[in-house]
């Protein structure tokens, strides 16, 4: 251990390889267009959740502006796709990411002057303002509550099955790349500094870390990925309505993060997958959707504060503890 922290064990590499391979071949054997659409939408929500988890869980800033940042990624990339049709769509999505990253950095400066509940209030207000502005459809830029006009999208010429399959792979690629990026960032100098600032801000500043600089960087990276998710959503759905950044998707997304395990790499994966399945199963019982959502959140917050990933970590440590105790007992007492 002379240069890396939290190195990945060979066993875990094997698990990752198997999971990636299974995810890659899945759309070749599964075609149902209804569920494939839900799965691709879930993938895009997952990208958004990975971005949010970075600023919420790893940097520890209770930023509720993330869905507005996501929407700005959709609108800015859509503006390029509509009005500058010479620009390739992937480039337009990248532009949306960069635009969102810049806005996120600008949001960081006033936000990071505040503490606790005021952080949440300011960022939440920011999201509300962006939503109201978008509903008013200034200069026809957002399409208002009717939704953004139809855009070419990444694969305008493909049939339904191939279209869904192609988007599935694109999103899976973004997810895998961002998971590796987050895992790498977590143990990078920036990631260690961010986690230290989250755990003990006054102490960390007294050890030479500039807390604001580290967190501004986190806002920028997180905003970039959220913007990419927004651009992907718009180009996949061929529409983006202002309800996409409302309170309902916001509470669903934050529930996914808390249930999966805030601040972990695999938490967003598990939380998003689990709640997408539950919400889809209950789609014909809209009343129950919210009830089950609330109940699950309550149970997790009260009984498993670290989320599902935290729970597995605890079980793993406990089993290791038992094994170690057994080994101690098996040894003959000295003397």
């Amino acid at each position: 251990m002379t240069g890396t922290f939290g190195a990945v064990t060979p066993g875990r590499w094997a698990m990752i390889a198997v999971a990636v391979a299974l995810a890659a071949v899945f759309p070749l054997v599964y075609h149902d267009p209804y569920y494939m659409t839900i799965i691709v939408t879930g993938e895009i929500v997952l990208i958004l959740n990975i971005s949010w988890n970075f600023v919420l869980g790893m940097a520890g800033v209770w930023n509720f502006g993330q869905l507005a940042i996501y929407a700005l990624g959709a609108y800015s990339s859509g503006w390029l796709m509509l009005h500058h049709s010479g620009v390739p769509v992937p480039l337009a999505i990248l532009f949306g990411g960069l635009f969102s990253g810049v806005v996120s950095v600008l949001l960081a400066f006033p936000t990071l002057r505040l503490f606790g509940i005021y952080t949440s209030l300011l960022t939440f207000s920011f999201a509300q303002v962006i939503q109201y502005v978008a509903v008013n459809n200034p200069h026809g830029l957002t399409g208002g509550s009717f939704g953004f006009p139809e855009v070419p999208g990444l694969f305008p010429d493909l049939g339904q099955t191939a279209y869904l399959r192609a988007y599935y792979w694109v999103c899976a690629g973004v997810i895998i790349a961002s998971c590796f990026a987050v895992a790498w960032l977590r143990q990078s100098h920036l990631g260690i500094a961010l986690r230290s600032v989250r755990d003990a801000p006054a102490y960390t500043a007294a050890r030479g870390v500039n807390p604001r600089a580290a967190r501004v960087a986190a806002f920028g990276l997180s905003g970039f990925l959220a913007g990419i998710a927004g651009g992907l959503y718009l180009s996949f759905e061929q529409s983006f309505t202002t309800s996409q950044m409302g309170l309902t998707p916001m509470s669903l997304d934050v529930t996914m993060l808390v249930i999966g395990g805030l601040g972990t790499v695999s938490g967003p994966l598990i939380g998003t997958a689990l709640l997408t399945v539950i919400q889809t199963k209950l789609i014909n019982y809209p009343g129950w959707q919210l009830t089950v959502l609330g109940a699950t959140l309550l149970v997790i917050v009260v009984f498993v504060p670290g989320g599902i990933v935290g729970l597995f970590g605890r079980i793993d440590r406990r089993v290791r503890g038992w094994v170690a105790e057994d080994a101690d007992e098996a040894e003959p007492a000295p003397g």
């Binding site: 922290f5 260690i192 986690r195 230290s196 989250r198 755990d199 003990a200 006054a202 102490y203 960390t204 601040g263």
Partner: peptide, 8 residues
């Protein structure tokens, strides 16, 4: 006594 608890 304070430190970054989740770091080693």
């Amino acid at each position: 006594p304070v430190a970054a608890d989740t770091l080693t």
